[in-house]
């Protein structure tokens, strides 16, 4: 076998194993919980999550609704994609709206205009109001050091909080989903996917994604070393020059703090090549919220974030 063939084999085995693991996790939750829900933003990880859920229960429909925590700072293409997917698969979508919370005073807009940290409260309220007991998230351990520490079944307190010092042992593939009333479990079927795995799997399965993941022309301005897009979140300021560039997004989050990367990758194959050559992690390249501090992600998770 040549090195190239061996490498291709390795990649195929790896994706097959990751797929089977994720499907197993979905089915465990369907078998053991009363009211699971899939967090769905329309981004690539949650789209992949849904794709795997569909495969897990085929030919039956996915037995869970979707929950979108909507920051109000959206990319139009992503919302359109979300609605298209919901319609196509006949799913039920629950939306928890940060804007509603700001409008009626339950939340206050931050000085920096970023709404990512504001998602936690509407998320926790939606979980409590709908009595969701298992919440699937698209988090991956390779995204960030604190995520690398989280279990596949991650118990959250009645306040939605993650306590990293009190995680249960997680042995073999025997997941323990026991929780008390009011508590819930966050479940991460993509835990062991890397960014490269995600893209290779998207290519293999021909998963449809929002167009902004591929290269397109966009008016952007530079802030904190990132290319942000114009939008209702108050940019650009007078001193921020607008450029028209060919860009794409590596992650999709709140529009006010998700940066675009300059890229001409317009197909999955080109994106895979680009990801492989990149010297930055996807969060490092595109997320202002994670640059805030060494422990930004851990702190948000402790508060109940995804």
């Amino acid at each position: 076998m040549t090195t190239l063939e061996a490498a291709a084999d390795a990649a195929r085995d790896n994706l097959a194993a990751l797929e089977s693991e994720a499907i197993h996790i979905f089915r465990e939750v369907a078998g053991e919980f009363d009211r699971p829900v899939i967090l769905f933003s329309g981004g690539k990880d949650s789209t992949l999550l849904l794709h795997l859920a569909i495969k897990a229960f085929w030919p039956a429909p996915v037995p869970f609704p979707l929950l979108h925590v909507d920051t109000g700072h959206n990319f139009d293409e992503v919302i359109a994609f979300r609605d298209h997917v919901v319609e196509k698969y006949g799913l039920r979508l629950v939306v928890a709206s940060v804007q509603d919370y700001i409008d009626d005073g339950r939340l206050v807009e931050r000085a920096d205009g970023t709404r990512n940290p504001l998602q936690t409260q509407p998320l926790l309220d939606a979980i409590a109001d709908n009595k969701f007991d298992a919440v699937f998230g698209g988090g991956r351990r390779d995204e960030e050091r604190a995520r690398a520490k989280e279990r596949i079944f991650s118990l959250r307190s009645a306040f939605g909080q993650w306590d990293p010092r009190r995680q249960r042992p997680e042995l073999w593939n025997l997941y323990n989903g026991r929780h008390r009333p009011g508590e819930h479990v966050r479940v991460f079927p993509l835990s062991n996917f890397t960014e490269a795995d995600v893209w290779n799997y998207i290519a293999r399965e021909q998963v449809e994604l929002p167009s902004i993941y591929y290269a397109h022309q966009r008016k952007v301005y530079s802030r904190d070393g990132m290319w942000l897009t114009e939008g209702p979140w108050g940019g650009p300021r007078a001193d921020e020059e607008v450029h028209e560039l060919t860009v794409r997004y590596r992650t999709v989050g709140d529009g006010s703090c998700t940066g675009a990367v300059e890229s001409t990758a317009s197909t999955v194959e080109e994106v895979i090549a680009e990801v492989q050559a990149s010297r930055l992690t996807e969060r490092g390249a595109t997320r202002a919220d994670d640059r805030m501090s060494e422990a930004a992600m851990e702190d948000r998770k402790r508060e109940g974030y995804f």
Binding site: T3, A6, A7, R141, D142, K149, R165, Q167, S191, T194
Partner: peptide
């Protein structure tokens, strides 16, 4: 706590 990390060489993941 356990950290899970991933890396690959041409021969193995």
């Amino acid at each position: 706590d356990v950290a899970y990390r991933y890396f690959a060489t041409p021969n193995r993941s």
